[in-house]
Structures are given as structure tokens and as C-alpha cells.
Design a protein around this nucleic acid. Sequence first.
DNA 1: TGACGCATCAACCGATCGGTTGATGCCAGT
DNA 2: ACTGGCATCAACCGATCGGTTGATGCGTCA
Lengths: 206, 206
Amino acid sequence: MIRVVVADDHPIVRGGIVALLSAADDMTVVAEASDGLEAVRLAAEHAPDVVLMDLRMPGLDGDEATARILAATPNVRVVILTTYESDASILTAIEAGASGYLLKAAPQEEILAGVRSVARGEVALAPSIAAMLVQRVARPAVTLSPRETEVLALVAQGSSNPSIAAALFVSEATVKTHLLHVFEKLGVNDRTRAVTRAMELGLLGR
Amino acid sequence: MIRVVVADDHPIVRGGIVALLSAADDMTVVAEASDGLEAVRLAAEHAPDVVLMDLRMPGLDGDEATARILAATPNVRVVILTTYESDASILTAIEAGASGYLLKAAPQEEILAGVRSVARGEVALAPSIAAMLVQRVARPAVTLSPRETEVLALVAQGSSNPSIAAALFVSEATVKTHLLHVFEKLGVNDRTRAVTRAMELGLLGR
DNA sequence: TGACGCATCAACCGATCGGTTGATGCCAGT
DNA sequence: ACTGGCATCAACCGATCGGTTGATGCGTCA
């Protein structure tokens, strides 16, 4: 019997997940959480086999909750179940130690099979996530340095190079250098496209 | 007995919705659709009291499906049930004739109450949607002309004014004039902020 | 008819941007 | 010690951008 804690901030979605798992002969839902912090607390309290958790929740997101759950209860395995998110957020969850990443758009049988795999100690990835990881290994992702990200975020707010320089207590030449590095990394030629491209890649918040 | 067609492309979410409605004494789910086209077909076939439908679905989105359902079966009422979307997409659904707009994050009782209101001929709005509509009436939304939108989309792709002018077979002065109008309307001072602001407002696709 | 929104266009000017060509220094890893 | 990434900085220059000040013409609506 696979013991599961379910965490999702949408009650109607959580209801659907609980109903699906409860109908399976080999699973039982031992607790339900509506945010990341509650998921961490219930995992510690119930020591389930699997925490099945959304990624985007109020307060504490699923990736941070994953890290905390695994730090506190290393025998628990975490499966992320979410709508498609950016490559960057998927990778953050996997780097945090999630053993599975499943999509809500998947057929119900695929979600059940994923939970079972993870309970057996395997890794379960939705096919599109697996494909993304394969591609990522073949061609490592673009990353921006913290400073580059900081400068680009100010660009996205409409700041000019001189005003960014003033805000960050550096010279315009420094701002410009950071931006040129960003353009190189993202393969773009101007600030506006850099912003939209970074958003597409999940490197800049929306 | 309120007869409902449920439309959502995520099987696990649809399962949660169906479970919730089926557990209510006064509701029965007469059919389930996994996309907008199927919702239109099932509404015509079953003539339910209410179609409870997601907004963002493959093939045909909920707003277009709403318009088609109402054109073909005017006695059916449509309730949109979705995660939060942009103000613009909410308005499009309401303009298409949806009688309700509910959020998946809502408590289950609120979703049931919303469906009952709509079945009675009333309008059901999630509180945050109602608040947005009130604000919208008090302060009408920004809109961009088709040409302004076209120019701004090219800006978002990193095109310079000269290249936009060439692409659209107009002069640079025309491009610049459109952009200046966009800046005025959006209350911004530069192209980059215009793009991000328009995305925030749902005026430019992501 | 007049007003408004939209689309189109021009010229001038200062500010900003992007590219280029360097440079220094710090830190971490091999 | 060396290398690479990151952060910082400068000067010059041409291209682009944004603001300003106009203008015309079309279609729609009251």
C-alpha cells in the first residue's frame, strides 16, 4: 500500500487527485495540504511513501518544499504534478531532489503509474519532461549571472542604462558590459528581445 | 436537477470537477469534454442547463467555444472555471456571453454555489473577477489599435524601427508615431517597458 | 458638418544604445 | 600557477531611439 500526501492549492484539483489515488487498490491518501509549508509539516507527521505536490503554490513553492521535505524526511519521495512550467522551474524542482515530474494534462493511468514507479524507488518523468532533459544534457542551458539578471530585470522595467548605473552604484560602462554579455548568451541583438527571450527561457520572472 | 457538461483538457482536473458536481444532490454531469470543440458538440447533443468549462484548452479556447455554444444552443448557460488569466482573456470570455467566471482556487462550495446561481439565470463571478470588472467600469481598459499591436509585436521580437518599417511597407516615421501612441496609452517611456507592460495587460501574447 | 480615432508622413535634435577595443582585480577550481 | 567566470571600468563612434512640431486623408458616428 503506497501512502501518499497530496499537496495542491486548488481544492477542486486536489479533490480530483485524491479521488484518483483513493480509487487505486494499492494507494491511500494519508493527508492533504493546500500549500508548501503544510506539505512539509504533513510529510514529517505522516512519513508517507510519496508526496504528490504542485509546483506553484502560495507561500512556499513546490521546489523549496521538496528540498525541505527531503532534508527533514529523506525516505520520502516527492513527485511534482503540475501544468507545464518553464524549463528553469522544472530543473529547479529536479535539482531540489524530486523523484518525479508529471503533468496534469496526462492521462490518469499515467499519473498512477508514475506514483507507483517512484514508490518503487524509480524516477518518473512525463514524456515531454524527459525529452526536455535529454535535450538539456545534449545542449546545456543558458544561464545568466546574478548581476546580469539584476540588470536585465531593470531593463524590463524600462530603465535606461544611466538610471540602471545609478540604481546599482556602478558606471554605465559596467551596465553596458553586462548587457552585451546577456545579448551574447541569449543570442539577441537588443535589450527588448533580451527581455522577451529571457522570459521565454524562464530566466526572468513575469 | 441541474444538468451539466464539464469541459477541461486535464483529465485529473476534470475528474475532480465531475466528482464534486456528482456528489451534489441537485446536479448531474451528463457529459465530459476534453476540448472546446467537443464541448460545443456535447452541448448541442445534451442541451444541459450549464456548461462548466476551462478557458485555455487545445484547439478551441473556452471563449470561442462559449460563443459557439450560445449561438447553437441559446438556452445553455456557460460558466468558465479556470486558473487566473489576464484581464483581457477574462473580458473576452464574458463578452462572448459566459454567465459565470469562477476560479479553480476557490473553495468547492463556492464553485457549487456559482453553478447553482447560473442555473437560476443569475451571473456568478469569483470575487476577484467581480472586483476587476468594477474597476474596469470605473476606469476603462487600455486598448491598442491593430496596427499598434502589430508594431509592438515586432518590437518584442527585437526588430528596430527601420526593419519594422520595411516589414510593414511604411516609413520609419509611421512606425515611430505608432510607438509613441503606444507609449502614451500604456504610460511608459520606452519600447522595452511597452512590451512588458502590454504582456502584463494581456495585450500582447507571450 | 464636426469630432474623433486611425493610419500615414516629414525634419530636426539630443539622448541613448550597441559595438569595439582594450583594461584590472577577485575568486574558485584544477 | 593558470584558467575561466564574474564584476568593474574607459573612450570613441555610428546607429537608433524618443520627443517635438507639424501635416494629410479616410471612415465612423452623432
